[in-house]
Each structure stands twice: as structure tokens, then as C-alpha cells.
Design a binder for these strands. Structure first.
Lengths: 205, 205
DNA sequence: TAGATTGTTAATCGATTAACAATC
DNA sequence: TAGATTGTTAATCGATTAACAATC
């Protein structure tokens, strides 16, 4: 199997998210176009790139398609567990850790970090909270691969550097800072500010 | 000015975010490559597409470059105000509204909505909170263009439909659902779950 | 000047679209 | 069958890379 281009990979990840909550048995490229805005020819091309040939003239079996996409992108399926941590336990970080955002998903938050001792002592969670200085020992020990970064902007790069040094493979960046990181660590920006600016730029284009 | 392709537009928006917190006077394409991972030739090409010709042999003046990018993408500058609302005042929505995420930015949250009356009564904020049924009157009256969607997944599409009907131009989607919306409404997905899946897919590619 | 970086062109590369035979 | 949709090919379109003269 040749490797899937980035644009296709991101669309397939989106389709997987769509299918994960899809309720009917069958789905067509036309329906997926309506639900995602992606052209149906492109959807069929992506599915073809993913190596899935199970479609018939009344569409794809949704669960088979989802399994195929998960398989080729190596996305974790329900039942598997990938460990994450939250760095930054301010209002936003605390809410992310308490709101059950990863319930019923393969991702599981197993640690929280903050540089302010009083945050780690005052807050409570289903998993242990540590001072930031413990990151480099806790992250490898707990087999944490991914971090949610929710610190204040002025600490963002500093904490990102520590996460990188601790061995995380990916960072979900909630701060408004653009993080410098080695190519071996993947950063996904989910800053609401950046998102709004992307929306404005698209509207005005 | 011919219109800027989407890929360039998104990179330029990222550069604007970078420059907004950049402290030195001058910046080169090599520095921007290190900070963002984008190839320096591509950065220069994007800047050229944006119509900025102010670079000299020791780089760009950061503030001029930022102004130019904001100008061409019509990004709001500090001092301007664009009004937003939060839909969904659970733990995450409440944290987003209280954590000052848009302080010192052109975006301002001016209303919050929840379908549970007890949330709008129990919580307090610098701006009014309304039952969801009021969206269609409050959003146009308050000149709200953008919404942060932070409801439970099972209400996501329903609330998105109401936001669309109320006239918002863009939705920042914190839920794990993939939203169906007309092409005239821009959706940016900032779901941590989708972000993690994108990270996993990239690592395994 | 010497060294470094920009701005732009041309070449390459990759992604999207159109179209339609094959399939159910 | 009739109608609809897939899977794939070829054509088009757009984006990235390489290279380098111009500039400071």
C-alpha cells in the first residue's frame, strides 16, 4: 500500500469521526458529501486510496468502512487505550479534565500537571495530579503518548519544551501560541482564537 | 489582487498568530520555518501572494508583515471588536466563558446560551446568559457573528442548526460531532478527540 | 564589500475533477 | 430490468520546490 497523502488522511480521519456516530447501516458518498461538504468524487477517491473496495451500488456498509479507515490510518478502536495527560490546570484545563471529554473513546487522561502547587493540591480528579517538575518521570512511567496543553500563553512554549523532553509524541495545543517543536512531535492547534481567525479569513476570501 | 488559495491562507493565518506574540523587530523566513515547520521558500511564496514586498536582505519587519497579512486576509486587528457567543454552558462551556480566552483580542463573548434553564440561572458572567430558545432573537440583535459550540455531542447538530438559523457566519466546534452546515457558514473543528486522531494518523503514516 | 535573504520564475509534483464502464 | 452508485482512469488544475538574480 502506497502511503496516503496528508490531505486525504485528514479527510479520512474526519469521515471516521462522522461514521463513529452514524446510526444507519449504509451510507453513500452523496450523503457523506452533504454531511461534510467534501465533494463525493473526492470521498470515493479517498476511500479507494484507503484500500477499501467494499462499496456496492447502494453505498457502503458504514461499520465496514469505519473499520477499514481505522485500519489503514491505524486509529485506535474503542476498547484500545492510549494514554494522555493535561498540562495546565487553570479554569480551562480543569474543565477539560472533569468534563469527561474522552469518555467512551480510546483516549484516557491518566495525569494532570501544573507548575502551581496549589492547583494540584486543591483540584481533584480520577487520576493523579503532579507538579510540572514531575513530568519527565511520570510521562514515560505512565506510558503517556499525548498531551493536552492548556496553560497560559506565556508558559506555552516552556511547557511544550518540557513535554517534548518527556517524550510525548503529540500535543493538542489549546493556547494561542504557535509552538516550536521537533518534527518528530506532532502539534495540532485547537486554539479558539486561531479557529476564529481562520473562519474570518475564509469568509473574506 | 487574485484570491489567495486556501492552503496559503491558512498558513498566513498561522503566521499572523505567530507574529502577534513575536517580540523582536525583524524576522526572516528561516526563523519562521523553524518556528512553524513550514518550508522557508513556501513562506516567502505565501508572503508574496499576500502582496507584501517589504522584505529586505536581513528579513521582514515583523509589525509591517503582520499588518500586511491582517490587511489582505481582513483579519480583525486589536481595537476592533467582533462579537461571539457560547452555546452550551456545561463544565467546558462555562470554563471557556470564564477563562478570559479572548482577553486582549478583537473577539468578545457577549452572550451565552444553554437549553437547561438552571445553567443560565446558576452561572454568572460579564455578559448575559439566555435559554437556548432566545438564540434567534438575541444573536441578530447583539450582532453576533460567531459561536463557540460546547454542548454535549447528542445536542450538537440540533444546536448548530439553531445557530445557523440565527444567522451566525461561523462556528468553532468543540464537540466530537461532525456538523452539517450550509456552505455559507464556516465550521472549524477544534474537537480534542479529532485532534488526537489526526495526530495518531500522522504519526502512523 | 562579503554575506545573507528576498522575490520571482520555471519545473516538478501532487491533488482534484470529470467522466463513465462496471456493478448491484 | 431500471436506476443508482461505486471504482478507476485520464485530464485538469493547483500547490510546492528548486534555483538564482536582485537587493541590502
Amino acid at each position: 500500500m502506497e502511503k496516503i497523502p496528508e490531505a486525504s488522511r485528514r479527510r479520512l480521519t474526519l469521515l471516521a469521526a462522522l461514521l463513529a456516530s452514524y446510526k444507519e447501516e449504509k451510507i453513500t458518498s452523496i450523503q457523506m458529501q452533504r454531511m461534510t461538504g467534501i465533494d463525493r468524487a473526492l470521498i470515493r477517491k479517498d476511500i479507494s486510496l484507503a484500500g477499501f473496495k467494499g462499496g456496492v451500488s447502494n453505498g457502503y456498509k458504514a461499520s465496514d468502512l469505519l473499520d477499514a479507515i481505522r485500519g489503514v490510518l491505524k486509529l485506535p478502536a474503542p476498547g484500545q487505550k492510549r494514554f494522555c495527560c493535561i498540562a495546565g490546570l487553570g479554569k480551562l484545563g480543569a474543565a477539560l479534565m472533569q468534563c469527561g471529554i474522552f469518555d467512551e473513546t480510546p483516549f484516557k487522561i491518566v495525569a494532570g500537571f501544573d507548575s502551581r502547587v496549589n492547583r494540584t493540591e486543591v483540584l481533584s480528579a480520577d487520576f493523579p495530579l503532579y507538579p510540572a517538575a514531575k513530568m519527565e518521570t511520570v510521562i514515560p512511567e505512565s506510558k503517556i503518548d499525548f498531551a493536552i496543553l492548556a496553560v497560559e500563553n506565556d508558559q506555552a512554549q516552556l511547557m511544550a519544551d518540557r513535554l517534548v523532553k518527556s517524550g510525548v509524541k503529540g500535543i493538542v495545543n489549546f493556547t494561542s501560541e504557535i509552538l516550536e517543536a521537533p518534527k518528530s512531535v506532532v502539534v495540532e492547534n485547537v486554539s479558539p482564537l486561531l479557529a476564529l481567525n481562520n473562519i474570518v479569513a475564509e469568509i473574506n476570501s
